[in-house]
């Protein structure tokens, strides 16, 4: 049984993470903790009671983001799903977090090393699901003889290119506008 104090502490922590998510999505990871405190409606010092450093705040935020994506993707994925269904599920999950994810992939190289590892692990969940689908398709000999990491990195490269260059392809959500086209043509590239 949690005490009132613990419940309050967790609520404030969540409030800060929610605000950080929104501020980083809007402003990028160079946004200040002052901006986050203002958005969360807490004092600047309160942030450091919950997160000793900015790096720690970013890492905790990415871990929470990773868990959400993990759970979301797992719920959308089915055991015997087709490649089309899985790719659509992946894009649908990213659409839910599109602004934040766009910032993340654009700025990952400037984030702390530990955050980069969290980012790799976020992608591992996607690669786990994709690998299951591709292994099955390979057994049925419907996929070209391409190494798994090239299949995965090509998919990620394609959607990351569209996301980081959103302005070239769409006025609003590039994933919403180009989802069907990307899935259809990616499959044409890797299928026999």
């Amino acid at each position: 049984m949690k005490t009132k104090r613990q419940i309050q502490k967790e609520a404030t922590r969540k409030l800060i993470l929610d605000a950080a998510y929104q501020v980083y999505a809007n402003e990028g990871f160079s946004a200040t903790t002052n901006q986050i405190a203002k958005a969360a409606n807490v004092s600047h010092g309160t942030i450091f009671v919950h997160f000793p450093t900015v790096d720690n705040l970013i890492i905790c935020l990415l871990e929470r983001f990773g868990s959400e994506i993990n759970e979301h993707l797992h719920l959308l994925s089915e055991k015997d799903e087709s490649l089309e269904t899985f790719l659509a599920a992946h894009i649908n999950v990213l659409i839910c977090y599109e602004d934040f994810y766009k910032r993340l992939i654009s700025e990952i190289n400037s984030l702390p090393q530990e955050a980069k590892y969290v980012f790799i692990n976020i992608q591992s969940v996607v690669s786990l699901h994709l690998n299951q689908v591709i292994e099955r398709d390979k057994e049925q000999k419907v996929v070209k003889e391409i190494p798994m990491h090239i299949i995965f990195n090509s998919w990620l490269g394609l959607i990351h290119y569209y996301l980081t260059n959103n302005y070239l392809f769409a006025a609003g959500s590039v994933l919403t506008d180009h989802k069907d086209e990307l899935i259809l043509n990616y499959i044409k590239l890797i299928r026999k």
Partner: peptide
């Protein structure tokens, strides 16, 4: 092994990422 196979990571990077997880 799985991370290297599915993402093509360099071994030391894969090991560090797995440890972090």
């Amino acid at each position: 092994n799985f991370t290297i196979k599915t993402q093509g990571l360099e071994e030391t990077v894969a090991e560090k990422a797995v440890e972090a997880m």
